[in-house]
């Protein structure tokens, strides 16, 4: 059973097509990674999926209903969004920030109830952010703050989580920490996870399906499927316009991009990239 269905979706900015005739389906409780080079339309697609943008043509269905039929409130009950890092203007504390996810459910007195607080408490525990619940958001590190925003998304209690580059600016430990957290949300809480990412190796390790944007006309401009089918050395080199080294740990391949002046550049046998053929 699919929770999201996208058919023949196209979108562009002032005449320039960003996404063209895109079709894919996201199964309930699955993990989809959206990857691709800069400008391929990853964040645009995320904004289309949460109705911040309207498609030029094509349809998006959430739980079999057209996305246009959802009110802002109804859509917020279906999906929570974690955006890229930003600096808050005012000094909201961690718990105040997470509690905002319950705004939709506040009563007439404009306060949360006991159930809301329990949901927030659980989200703080799940993301290991409860120990700094009363600290101002601005005093946390980037990784801690990202976990707080994931806690807020969990507290919204929606079946779908959308994340826009959740690990940008984070060190290796925090990168895998965030992905482990998302995997737990998927497997233990039954969430459907859709994450835009630049990290194809983490995407390969954690996602059930991968949507690789920025391909050629011959492959419809995108590739969709299991990571091991979508991420081939040839595909990665062509889409990202870079030479890379490919290896395999167990089930999944990994890729190390190597530029012309990289120490081990000479070890790569493939031809130098000759520009993306889009």
């Amino acid at each position: 059973m699919n929770i999201i269905e996208v058919h023949n979706l196209s979108f562009g900015y002032s005449g320039a097509e960003v996404l063209q005739d895109l079709s894919f389906e996201v199964g309930r409780q699955s993990f989809l990674a959206i990857a691709g080079p800069n400008g391929a339309g990853k964040s645009t697609l995320l904004n289309l999926l949460c109705a911040l943008l309207k498609p030029k043509s094509g349809t998006i269905r959430i739980d079999t209903e057209a996305i246009e039929s959802y009110s802002t409130e109804a859509l917020a009950q279906k999906m929570a969004v974690v955006r890229q890092e930003f600096v808050p203007v005012f000094g909201f504390s961690v718990i105040e920030t997470v509690l905002m996810a319950r705004t939709l459910y506040y009563g007439q007195m404009r306060f949360e109830n006991k159930a809301d607080r329990e949901i927030v408490n659980e989200a703080l525990k799940a993301t290991d952010t409860i120990q700094f619940a009363s600290r101002p958001l601005g005093s946390l590190s980037g990784g801690e703050r990202q976990r707080v925003f994931i806690a807020r998304a969990l507290a919204q209690n929606t079946p779908i989580l959308l994340l826009d580059e959740p690990t940008s600016f984070l060190d290796l430990k925090h990168q895998v920490g965030i992905y482990d957290l998302l995997k737990v949300a998927q497997l233990e809480k039954g969430k459907t996870i859709i994450a835009v990412t630049h990290d194809i190796n983490l995407a390969a390790q954690y996602a059930d399906e991968v949507l690789l944007l920025g391909g050629t006309q011959a492959d419809s401009g995108y590739q969709y499927g299991h990571a091991r089918d979508v991420f081939s050395l040839e595909q990665i080199e062509r889409v990202f316009d870079v030479r890379a080294f490919a290896g395999k740990i167990g089930q999944e391949k990994f890729f190390i991009p190597l530029g012309k002046f990289a120490k081990d550049s000479g070890q790569i046998t493939s031809k130098p990239p000759s520009g993306r053929q889009k």
Binding site: T72, V81, V89, F92, T103, L104, R110
Partner: peptide, 25 residues
């Protein structure tokens, strides 16, 4: 204004964030 104050809290984090949390911005 008090009646819409929770929504103002959410808007402090930006319009897109607030809409994601169900606020009719």
């Amino acid at each position: 204004l008090f009646y819409i104050s929770p929504q103002l809290n959410a808007i402090s984090f930006g319009e897109d964030d607030a809409r994601s949390m169900g606020v009719n911005t």
